[in-house]
């Protein structure tokens, strides 16, 4: 079955948004409130609609698993280096506790592996907002570097979905160095004539923006995604003034010329698959 066949716009729920107290009682977990338009949305509808608000089109953040399900062909994803996990290498105060909490969700802030997208063998890296806001530590950098090195050796294209608060300060200078390390791996992949597509998702900031997020041959972004080097709060502090509302959204950086296209979630997989095909990568099987 086509993955997107059941994706239909659903607008009938909008009326319930203003007076949730009038809605007949339902268990709370069945509903989710859209942070953008305040509409109350049925979780089952949300799932069917790829976690996009059926009312205003707001793209909810996806988990790693959901992102892989969105992009990879069914059951095709094989994770690499799953056992690599963050450590408190500098003995940074408080970091152990943060890691312990984050590790209930995953081993690191990125999940890398190999899959098929539209039948085409692709290396896929998905950053994890639930792991310390996708911050880049040494293991994050190591996993991404390994993914690019693997793709270079195997002659495969790479797709990276970014979501990140930037370099992880608890790993100090060693985190910063991951920007150079990953960029080097991207460059070698690029010099081998291979395709790299980045998909920027909300939020993509700091050291990730200033390294592999902005290094794709083709850079796509989901709608209304924060794409920034310095985050809006930092800039507000420097400028001491409020920023325009759409500042640093994916639509804004598109208009400024720094990304190729804003692609809504329902078109993401087909767009990536078409691009892969146009670069001469063949379907397997």
């Amino acid at each position: 079955m086509d993955f997107f066949a059941f994706v239909k716009p659903k607008n009938e729920l909008e009326a319930s948004s203003n007076k949730p107290e009038n809605v007949p009682f339902v268990p709370e977990e069945m509903w989710v409130k859209c942070p953008k338009c305040n509409a109350m949305l049925l979780t089952t509808d949300m799932e069917e609609n790829l976690h996009v608000c059926t009312h205003c089109g707001h793209h909810f953040r996806l988990s790693v698993r959901q992102r892989i399900e969105l992009l990879a062909d069914r059951d095709s994803f094989r994770e690499h280096d799953a056992e690599l996990t963050a450590k408190n290498i500098l003995d940074f105060p408080g970091y152990d506790a943060k890691l312990e909490k984050a590790k209930r969700n995953a081993n690191e802030s990125v999940c890398c592996g190999e899959c098929r997208i539209g039948g085409i063998k692709t290396v896929l890296c998905v950053m994890n907002a639930e792991f310390m806001m996708g911050s880049m530590g040494t293991v994050t950098g190591e996993k991404i570097t390994r993914a690019f090195e693997y793709a270079t050796d195997a002659g495969l294209p790479v797709v990276v979905c970014t979501v990140s608060g930037g370099a992880r300060m608890q790993e100090g200078i060693l985190s910063l160095m991951q920007m150079a390390k990953t960029s080097g791996a991207v460059k070698r992949h690029s010099d081998a004539g291979l395709l790299y597509i980045t998909i920027l998702t909300d939020p993509t900031t700091g050291g990730v923006t200033a390294s592999f997020a902005m290094e794709g041959d083709i850079i796509l972004a989901e709608p209304d995604t924060l794409v920034a080097f310095a985050g809006p709060r930092v800039i507000e502090q420097t400028m001491r003034q409020k920023l325009p509302r759409d500042f640093q959204t994916s639509e804004f950086v598109l208009q400024k010329g720094f990304i190729d296209a804003v692609v809504s979630r329902d078109k993401l997989k087909s767009t990536v698959a078409r691009l892969l095909k146009m670069h001469g990568y063949a379907e397997v099987e």
Binding site: G184, M214, A228, F229, A230, I235, T238, K256
Partner: peptide
């Protein structure tokens, strides 16, 4: 960290240097 710097792609400029210098 400022409006003009962001508008003109501060992140992209740094990223490109990292890649090209390597």
């Amino acid at each position: 960290p400022g409006i003009g710097a962001e508008e003109r792609g501060q992140g992209q400029a740094i990223a490109e240097n990292l890649m090209e210098m390597m």
